[in-house]
């Protein structure tokens, strides 16, 4: 088990290094002068030079590269070009807000979609199954921002339900915030429902056909016990993997949702950083997303190992 975790941690480090390299390459492909870009074409050359010296963007590329690699591991992303404040002070609160939204979306999605997947699997090829599978396919193939815009037109405008601007005023209670976050979370629920439901369905169908399920039924367990102790335990492993992988992609989708609802999360922060070419913020945010994503997949693997002794034993070997 320990070896398994160590291996995964090593691959996380490699991936983060690659991520940082890609970001660095993208940021530096254009031979542009950062100071000139930020300060504009009319700034005096002295100021541009001073700006570059302060940021370290006048140093040779290789040195800058090592600098940026060092930054991931020390979690020091420097200062924002726009506001001058520490990048971490900008992106961490934003991550918190996005996390709140994502968490709400997951809390709604996971039980509904697992239940729908199990229900569909037990009625395989019947009408209810078809409806769940096709609705899931449709809802999860639509981009989140489209769902968000459609929900906004229907709920907030026609039915006057939910809020069109997701930012709750300062000091709103946790329950009060729910009203603000409900519509954007719902947009993400639509996007993730299909994947999780389909994955659960596939898992349950294959483990309903497995030998251990037949054995469990033959030895006289009630169907409820068979479901809970044998079928679900095995069927949920792929589902958990899907959920964890989605946490990473969630961030991609969340950008669109946050934009539609004008929510001040990490997605909006990144968008405004892209617009202003605020590279330290962008770099920090992308790497932070990478870290969150990889930790969540690691967590998922551990959870699967916990649920399934076979995986645990294999890892021990």
């Amino acid at each position: 088990m320990r070896r398994f975790i160590l291996q995964r941690l090593a691959s996380i480090v490699v991936t983060l290094w690659l991520l940082a390299t890609i970001v660095f390459m993208l940021v530096n492909v254009l031979p542009g002068n950062v100071g000139r870009q930020i300060l504009g074409p009319f700034a005096p050359q002295v100021e541009v030079d001073a700006f570059n010296a302060r940021l370290g963007t006048d140093k040779p590329l290789l040195e800058q590269y090592f600098q940026s690699i060092k930054r991931i591991f020390t979690l020091d992303f420097g200062d924002s070009y726009q506001s001058g404040s520490d990048v971490l002070d900008i992106i961490l609160p934003a991550l918190g807000r996005s996390g709140k939204l994502a968490l709400l979306a997951f809390i709604i999605t996971i039980p509904i979609s697992i239940a729908a997947g199990v229900y569909a699997a037990r009625r395989q090829d019947k009408f209810a199954d078809r409806v769940i599978v096709n609705a899931g396919l449709a809802s999860s193939s639509i981009p989140e921002f489209v769902t968000a815009a459609l929900l906004l037109s229907v709920f907030a405008v026609h039915w006057k339900l939910g809020k069109a601007f997701a930012n709750p005023p300062e000091g709103t209670s946790l329950i009060g915030q729910l009203e603000y976050l409900l519509l954007p979370a719902l947009a993400m629920v639509f996007a993730y429902f299909g994947y999780i439901a389909r994955m659960t369905r596939a898992g349950v169908i294959s483990s309903l056909m497995a030998d251990y399920t037949r054995t469990a039924t033959m030895k006289g367990l009630s169907s409820k016990q068979v479901m809970r102790r044998h079928v679900l335990r095995n069927a949920l492993a792929p589902t958990i993997t899907v959920i964890s992988v989605q946490i990473g992609y969630l961030i991609g989708g969340i950008i669109g949702v946050e934009k539609v609802f004008n929510y001040a999360g990490l997605g909006s922060t990144m968008l405004s950083a892209v617009g202003a070419k605020d590279i330290p913020v962008l770099q920090g945010a992308v790497l932070l997303v990478g870290i969150v994503y990889m930790l969540s997949t690691l967590l998922a693997d551990l959870l699967i190992a916990y649920l399934n002794p076979r995986v645990r034993l294999e890892a021990k070997r």
């Binding site: 490699v14 991936t15 690659l18 991520l19 890609i22 970001v23 993208l26 940021v27 990473g248 992609y249 961030i251 991609g252 989708g253 950008i255 990144m270 968008l271 892209v274 962008l282 945010a285 992308v286 997303v289 990478g290 994503y293 990889m294 997949t297």
Partner: peptide, 13 residues
């Protein structure tokens, strides 16, 4: 590692 990248973000960048 590529698969672990947030695609939309990288593309945007």
């Amino acid at each position: 590692s590529f698969l672990a990248l947030p695609t939309v973000l990288i593309a945007l960048l």
